[in-house]
Design a protein around this nucleic acid. Structure first.
Lengths: 232, 232
DNA sequence: TCTATGAGTTAGCAATGCCTAACTCTGGAG
DNA sequence: CTCCAGAGTTAGGCATTGCTAACTCATAGA
């Protein structure tokens, strides 16, 4: 008699907490080797400092990060692998939802944020295959490959581009749906060439020309958009 | 300043427990109005009786089921809605994985079991649209429609078919991967016509003819396969 | 150097959901 | 009608992950 529990969830050890923290820390760490503070992690994840502090301590015990009390954390190689795995899931899912199911650009992030923790390795591979092993998601963010290698990012904020300089818009944060809708409405997508024509002072908008049309982009937006400088 | 926590998970109150219990009870209740026992629920979900007992009490407090201590539970209309919502998710996901991503028949169940709790209403609708609002999943199970109405099931177990009777194989439980592989190997799928030619006594195999070929199917399998009797 | 302030931590509690151990109830055999 | 076996429940834990309240630490300004 091979009676099997119909809906048995084998060893569903919920790694979701660790996965979210690892991803948040990875994104906050940036290129540098700087440590990340408890408050920054807490704000990013929308929890209190106390909650983050407790969690960071636990994740350090698990070997996912180096933790110097009162002095911040840094991911260990294992922690970084975990973060990259989640980022790969997230971006593959975003692209899949947009390409295959036609979900609007500004809504894929929220869906991917949940699903990234629940797809199997097999499904990840099927999605990647369906999309032809893509190198970047619909927002222009690079997708780590199967071995979790990720291209170096030499982009700068649009904000940092000098007047008269040209560049290619490469990506934008995927987490602000309003910003994404604004850009989509103006047909500004990753890959677009642009020229910085000038800027208003005192936090005023940035003036760019894209495809022959002049746009005036708010300073907050100009800080979120990443561009690759084009040498003249 | 509309600073937003990047990865904030709004009100992620984990309904997953309730969803799994509701689904299990729905499936155990069958057509009838009989109540379902604590042990049956516990076995189905692979938890102890004590765990199930506590959970049933809590779900009753939440209005998902009627609970008479020592006398079993029955879903309330709200509980049934919840169960049907999960069943719709589950079966749409199974079909989607098989049709769109080419995942093998015997592996879609496990993946759907997890994902069913995590897709948004919007994604559910996009999947249903992509599949053309399908009426049944790859195992032949009916999919509740958008309003959660589900076709009445007048199928019987293959086991109950008399010798010489004919029928259409309509579905099989999706939860035993080995059984599914066995059937797939023999090209026996929902929709196939068959004729019961006889059976061995004392729990022996059932003899059926399918597409001109004779098959001898184990009694456990014959109890899991559902057929619609064909009037001569 | 001293201290206030903000960053960080600890303590104690809550909700979910599972466990084992020990109890009680129900219903059928005698 | 009684009693017992098995079904069901309660009690007491543990792990996860969040919270508030109250504490400590680090450091920059005076």
């Amino acid at each position: 008699m091979t009676s099997i529990a119909h809906n048995a969830h084998p060893k569903r050890r919920t790694n979701e907490g660790a996965e979210n923290y690892a991803k948040a820390i990875y994104e906050l760490q940036g290129r540098g080797q700087e440590t990340v503070g408890t408050s920054a992690v807490a704000e990013r994840l929308g929890v209190t400092r106390a909650s983050a502090s407790g969690m960071l301590k636990r994740l350090a015990d698990e070997g996912l990060l180096e933790y110097a009390p009162y002095h911040g954390v840094r991911l260990t190689p294992e922690g970084e692998q975990l973060a990259l795995e989640m980022i790969r899931h997230h971006r593959l899912i975003e692209l899949f939802l947009a390409e295959v199911l036609g979900m609007p650009w500004d809504r894929v992030h929220a869906e991917a944020e949940v699903l990234e923790h629940h797809i199997s390795e097999e499904l990840e591979e099927l999605i990647a295959a369906k999309l032809g092993q893509p190198a970047s998601d619909p927002h222009g963010d690079p997708i780590p490959d199967r071995d979790l290698a990720i291209g170096e990012d030499d982009s700068i904020a649009l904000d940092e581009l000098g007047a008269g300089e040209r560049g290619t818009f490469v990506r934008v944060s995927d987490s602000d749906a309003e910003m994404l809708r604004y850009l989509a409405d103006r047909e500004i997508q990753p890959g677009t060439f642009l020229e910085m024509t000038g800027r208003e002072p005192f936090g005023g908008p940035v003036l760019v020309e894209i495809g022959g049309r002049a746009h005036s982009l708010g300073s907050e937006l100009a800080r979120s958009m990443r561009v690759e400088r084009r040498q003249p």
